[in-house]
Amino acid sequence: MRHLLSTADLTRTQALRILDTAEEMTGVSAREVKKLPTLRGRTVVNLFFEDSTRTRVSFEAAAKRLSADVVNFSAKGSSVSKGESLKDTVQTLDAMGADAIVIRHGSSGAPAQLAASDWSEAAVVNAGDGTHEHPTQALLDALTLRRDWHAAHYGEASSPRGTDLTGMRVLIVGDVLHSRVARSNIWLLTTLGATVSLVAPGTLLPVGVESWPVTVHYSFDQALAAGPDAVIMLRVQAERMGGSFFPNAAEYARRWGLTEERLAVVNQLRLAETEAPALILHPGPMNRGVEISAAAADSAQSRITEQVTNGVSVRMAVLHLLLTGSRGHHDDDRSSL
């Protein structure tokens, strides 16, 4: 494949190849000299139509550790804010010789449109599109989950490479309707053998969710009683609060937040039959006190800072695989992932 647009497109083999490569990249990031020469002379453009400093910095660090030249293009203050079309922007970047375009866009499907167009020959990486998908976030979540899941079963010394998440039960909590993270995780974790459950108010689940390979709960407490191995908390956007989705932030926190009381329940959970504790993830940025309490965010079970670290490794792996599989700007559709 030439692009990374959606985790629904990834086969198990392709997903494992990314995760395994990311494990190798983690070794690079742990070295004193955190750099590989593999993308020297290649240009990666971070094309961000939405503000997301976290994701942009992560992609930038990933590209630089692979020795690529990085161009950051933010829509704000650029010609885009003067009405330039996506097509013209992309053709401009293409004319400057972009080998990969990492695109974050508020409109669902913009990366897919770019990849399907003849506007550019560059590899397209979806860095989050509207309420559609955020594939590298799901991949870093999977990398984080796999490491603990494997270590719990086979010990810290054993490499998780080549293994998947078979048997793992993951609970995703919160605004699924508007979450690109939830969609990407549902497809990827299911492909990797995990069982996914959702818990959310009825207003924040999409019509059509019944066709997804998930179990849906409305009660967080009932969902926790089923004993998940990991809980992924979704961010609640400020604009949803005080609207018609739920009455207010306080009621949301009481019913769907990972409060201190629910943290006590999660504290008792273990990874399957092992002694290792269950995991808490959050894609960030967090609303402490709304969807997640400070105690939960800072608990020993939290993997939130590991997620950030793993994000760089996963993005290194994705850029490496997309750009070293095919040589040159106008190469044909050679499978690299």
Partner: peptide, 18 residues
């Protein structure tokens, strides 16, 4: 609303038109 609300809109992340 951007497209028919149903299974496809749920997956595509486009606001549904019931």
């Amino acid at each position: 609303a951007q497209m028919n609300e149903g299974e496809v809109s749920a997956t595509l992340g486009l606001p549904g038109w019931p």
